[in-house]
Design a protein around this nucleic acid. Structure first.
Lengths: 154, 154
DNA sequence: GTATGTGCAAATGATTTGCGTGCTT
DNA sequence: AAGCACGCAAATCATTTGCACATAC
């Protein structure tokens, strides 16, 4: 099981979205960075470091987990990926939104993560920050909930 | 610098809000738990474990940091305090809201934390969760911003 | 060629836990 | 009296880093 390609899927040779972003930022592109960029570009979930390492291993079996840590931090600082902490101790990553801005709802029973986007919410956050005398630069919002079905059946 | 009493401040002997909450939950009350409960009841900021430990030390110099960790976790699970992670590696704590629900805006230049509450925001979060098929149980929202003054002067 | 990245293993830093003893109910 | 809670120090877990070698530009 390894189906996480969003794109037409035989682009083994194509430059991934994230690799392109790296190049635009002028990063020195190593094989390892290319692989990690590809892994994240192809992921539609929120893998933790260990999982990114595991997936990267399939393209480059010699890659070190230290490099994965270093590269994820680099990408995070460069703002091309987002780091999350959903409550379990480790950090999880995903490619940054190309457009718009999404948040997460975590199913408290299953741990499943649902993504959502809401323009009213974006406006409201900016307005709140502004009212407090701040320009909103970043934010994090995680909702935790239980499925209405589960709830009903109780 | 050690000014964190919100109440009339000579209630050394009074039962703190959090101690009362503990009692209501049927917890076994030890001197250490009483002290930690008092420290958090008197705090108006978001101390990390080390700081709670430091403040607790002034009431009970023999308290162990392991106990502080254990007690904070206990209180967190019992829902009488809230745990936060504002980006620096360590967890920060504060007494849970008695009424309403507030969030935080972190000043990216100074690290200062501003609290705010917004009813529209509460409604919107609940509505979003509901639209996704979930009942909202909990949530975390942190805004990161820079002061409009600092911004202007650039 | 030179600065920078990588692998490995050891170091860190926050938090947790096993154990023997002490305190709360 | 019996069961937790505590203090202490050792253990864990995720993440970082020093060092010698390899690689991108």
């Amino acid at each position: 099981m390894m189906m996480r390609s969003t794109q037409p899927s035989k682009d083994k040779e194509k430059i991934s979205k994230l690799e392109r972003a790296c190049i635009e930022k002028g990063m020195k592109m190593t094989e390892q960075r290319r692989v990690i960029a590809r892994v994240l570009s192809e992921s539609t979930d929120h893998p933790d470091v260990e999982e990114v390492y595991h997936r990267a291993t399939q393209y480059d079996s010699g890659i070190s987990i230290a490099t994965v840590y270093r590269t994820l931090r680099l990408f995070d600082i460069a703002n091309i990926i987002d780091r999350h902490e959903f409550g379990d101790g480790r950090a999880r990553y995903e490619m940054s939104d190309q457009v718009g801005h999404h948040h997460h709802l975590i199913d408290m029973k299953t741990g499943q993560v649902v993504e959502f986007e809401d323009e009213k919410l974006e406006d409201l956050k900016a307005r709140i920050a502004n009212d407090l005398g701040y320009k909103l630069i970043g934010d994090r919002l995680d909702l935790y909930g239980v499925s209405l079905e589960d709830e009903d059946s109780k």
